[in-house]
Amino acid sequence: MNDMRKIERDVKMTDTKITARGVNVHYGDTHAIKDVDVDIADKTVTAFIGPSGCGKSTFLRCLNRMNDTIDICRVQGDIRLDGQDIYDKRVDPVQLRAKVGMVFQKPNPFPKSIYDNIAYGPRIHGLARSKADLDVIVEKSLRRGAIWDEVKDRLDQPGTGLSGGQQQRLCIARAIATEPEVLLMDEPCSALDPIATAQVEELIDELRRDYSVVVVTHSMQQAARVSQNTAFFHLGHLVEFNVTDQIFTNPQDSRTESYITGRIG
């Protein structure tokens, strides 16, 4: 109990990074997200859980406007990053995505060298002034991605040649290299084995020091392990949003309780 109080205090101390109010998403005729309100805290891991097709990934993709790339997708509502409406006409989604990085379900290293994978973001955003600068960024990002020791001797080899878990950490390092403020992770461990999963989870916990991290996950254990706050989605509704321990020990909604005890989902 003491432990839980400590985390609660932690959360209250941090600021809100993203606020979403009345978000609705339609895919063609399908109403995928229904009136979702959520506050995502800075320097915290927030987990989105829920059964398949409940809209958690869709909502995640609203936060960096990745849904813009899908023709039939319409997003309504108000999403603010540091108080700035990200769906405002003046906001360039390209710059937004540099600020809100994303890691995908399936590791997706580019068919380039490990170095070029990491350097991709810094290069397109002009973050490095010289080759030496870029080298520093690459090393720092790979260290933060907890993969430096494994790849430091083969930076010129293709990123696609790494194992699945290494690829995913490479993708996380690649996302970090652009110096984002928020890191969105869409089921980052679903394609990984338990050992690689443990490594990535450890990494997520590390990242909390500098970033606001949002993780979509199927695994309730994972949500319990890595997150401070948890949102439970069901059929496009945000059913319950609370401190993680509260969700798992004392759910307020009967649907949340059914899900975490394995009766639905």
């Binding site: 995505r97 540099a98 600020k99 068919p111 397109i124 690649r174």
Partner: peptide
């Protein structure tokens, strides 16, 4: 996933085309 990866890093569509899609 490669398109998403590039776009997710803040690449424009043109940058994604010239730096990721086209080489691949």
């Amino acid at each position: 996933t490669l398109r998403d990866g590039a776009l997710g890093l803040g690449a424009t569509r043109g940058e994604m085309m010239t730096t990721v899609l086209f080489p691949a």
